[in-house]
Design a protein around this nucleic acid. Structure first.
Length: 421
DNA sequence: TCTGGGGTCCTAGGACCC
DNA sequence: TCTGGGGTCCTAGGACCC
C-alpha cells in the first residue's frame, strides 16, 4: 500500500503558522513579481478565485479588505517542508518526497492493524509539531492514493485520512472522480476524453484496453491499470536530476542586450552554484528569451539555443561565459523582453567528468574551479552573493522584483547577512 | 499598467550506420 | 518514370506534474 501525504493549501498554511490572524480569512499567495495566484486558502477558493489568476484581476478584493495577500516566501516554505518531511521519514521505513508539499509513504510490511492507527496519528503529529494540516490518502497504487487524498481533503467526515482498500470503495471513488482530477490527465487530455464520453475515472477504466492503447498510448495505459489497482508507477529509485533551470519574468520589460546579459549571467551563476552544491557538472547550456506573450500589440519572439561544452563544467566562469555566448546568438534588438532563463543539462557527477584529448587546459579548469569554491565559501552567508562576476548584477543594484506583501523569515536566520552588511 | 517557476517522460522523426 | 531493409541514437516538442 501507498499513502500520499499532501499538505493542505501548503503556502497559505505556512504563512498562517506565523501569522495566526490569517486563520479563517480568505488568503492567497502570489508568484514571483506578485504576478498570479499560486496558493489559496479554502475561503479564497470558495470566493471563486482560481489557481493562476493574475493578481491585478483580484487586487480590488485586497484593497477593500476581503482578501489577504502574501508574496511568495520560498525560503520559509522550503524550511517548513523539510520539517514536515522529516517527521514523515521518521515514521515509516520508506518515503518518496514527490514535491515541496507531497510525499508518498511506502507502507509495505506494516501490519494492517498498525496501519489503521499510523496515518491518523501521523497527521496529528505533523499538525502538533509544525502547524501544517495534511491530508492522507491510502491505496494500493499511487494514482489511487492521489484520489484517496482528494477525498480526505474534501470531506470532513474522513478526518483527513481516507483509504481506498476494497473493490467497493474503489468503484465508488472512481465513479465520484471527474476524469480531469485523475493524476496523469491534464488540461489537454481531459477535453478530448469528455468528447469521447469519458466523464469520470470509472468511465475511463470501463473502456477496453485497446481503445486506451490506441488513443493514449503507454501513459494512458499506465493510468488505466493503476486505477484498477495494478501498480505501474513503481516506487521511485533515487535518480539524479537531469537538468537545472533558473529563469525569471521581469517586472518591467527589457530591451537592451547589456541588461539582459546581466540577468542571464545571474541565472547561469545560480545554475552553476546548484551544480556545485550537488556535486555535479553540466555540458549543455541552453538560454531562452520570451517577449511578453500577453501583449498582442507587440512583436513576439521566443528564441532558444544551446551549446555543448567540450568538458562538463560547474564553475561559474565557464557556465556564465557559455550562457553569454548563447545569448549573443539569439538576442535581437528591437524586442521588449519579459522573461529569460538558463538551463544546464546533460548533468553528470562531477567526479565522472571526462576531459577531451585535445584542447583542454587542466590548469585553467582547476583555477576556475578553485575560484568558484572560494566564491561559494564567501557567499555562503546570506542569499545575495557578495562575490560575483563583473558580468552579473552589481551589488548596489536594487532587487527589482515586485514583492509587495512578503512575510518574514520566521524559521531561518538573517543574522549572518546583517553581520556582513 | 498588471499574467510564475522548475521539473520529468514519451514519441515521432531525422540523422546516421551497415 | 523507376530508388531497400533494418537498426540505433539523438533531439524537439508536447504532454504531464507540482
Amino acid at each position: 500500500m501507498y499513502a500520499l501525504v499532501d499538505c493542505n493549501n501548503f503556502f497559505v498554511s505556512c504563512e498562517r503558522v506565523f501569522r495566526p490572524q490569517l486563520e479563517g480569512k480568505a488568503v492567497v499567495v502570489l508568484s514571483n513579481n506578485d504576478g498570479c495566484v499560486v496558493a489559496r486558502s479554502n475561503e479564497s477558493k470558495a470566493m471563486g478565485i482560481k489557481m493562476g489568476t493574475p493578481y491585478y484581476q483580484i487586487s480590488h478584493l485586497a484593497a477593500n479588505g476581503r482578501l489577504e495577500v502574501c508574496s511568495s516566501n520560498h525560503i520559509l516554505y522550503k524550511d517548513m517542508s523539510s520539517r514536515v518531511m522529516s517527521i514523515l521519514a521518521d515514521a515509516v521505513p520508506r518515503i518518496e518526497i514527490y514535491s515541496i508539499d507531497e510525499a508518498f509513504l511506502v507502507l509495505d510490511g506494516i501490519p494492517e492493524d498498525k496501519l489503521a492507527v499510523l496515518c491518523p496519528s501521523l497527521r496529528a503529529k505533523v499538525w502538533k509539531w509544525t502547524g501544517i494540516p495534511v491530508s492522507i490518502g491510502i491505496a494500493p497504487t499511487k494514482t489511487l492514493a492521489k484520489i484517496a487524498s482528494h477525498f480526505a481533503k474534501k470531506y470532513r467526515g474522513y478526518n483527513g485520512v481516507c483509504a481506498i482498500d476494497s473493490v467497493e470503495r474503489r468503484q465508488k471513488a472512481l465513479s465520484m472522480t471527474p476524469i480531469e482530477d485523475v493524476w496523469g490527465v491534464g488540461r489537454r487530455l481531459a477535453p478530448t476524453l469528455r468528447e469521447a464520453g469519458v466523464f469520470t475515472a470509472l468511465d475511463y477504466v470501463r473502456r477496453p484496453e485497446n481503445w486506451i492503447r490506441e488513443h493514449y498510448m503507454l501513459h494512458g495505459l499506465r493510468t488505466w491499470m493503476e486505477l484498477q489497482g495494478t501498480v505501474c508507477v513503481e516506487a521511485e529509485t533515487e535518480t539524479a536530476r537531469k537538468s537545472v533551470c533558473t529563469s525569471r519574468s521581469f517586472a518591467d520589460m527589457i530591451e537592451s542586450e547589456d541588461e539582459i546579459s546581466m540577468k542571464v549571467s545571474d541565472f547561469a551563476a545560480q545554475c552553476a552554484k546548484i551544480l556545485r552544491k550537488e556535486g555535479t557538472a553540466a555540458s549543455d547550456i541552453t538560454v531562452f528569451l520570451h517577449t511578453n506573450r500577453f501583449r498582442k500589440d507587440l512583436e513576439q519572439y521566443f528564441p532558444s539555443a544551446s551549446i555543448r561544452l567540450d568538458t562538463a563544467a560547474s564553475n561559474t566562469q565557464e557556465i556564465v561565459s557559455a550562457a553569454l555566448r548563447v545569448l549573443h546568438t539569439i538576442f535581437r534588438p528591437g524586442y521588449k523582453y519579459k522573461k529569460a532563463g538558463v538551463i544546464a543539462g546533460n548533468i553528470i557527477p562531477a567526479d565522472a567528468v571526462q576531459a577531451p584529448l585535445f584542447g583542454f587546459n587542466p590548469e585553467l579548469r582547476e583555477k576556475n574551479d578553485r575560484l568558484s569554491r572560494i566564491m561559494d565559501s564567501v557567499n555562503k552567508k546570506g542569499d545575495s552573493p557578495l562575490l560575483r562576476l563583473a558580468s552579473q548584477k552589481p551589488v548596489h543594484y536594487a532587487d527589482d522584483s515586485r514583492r509587495g506583501h512578503c512575510s518574514g523569515r520566521y524559521t531561518t536566520s538573517w543574522d549572518e547577512l546583517i553581520e556582513i552588511k
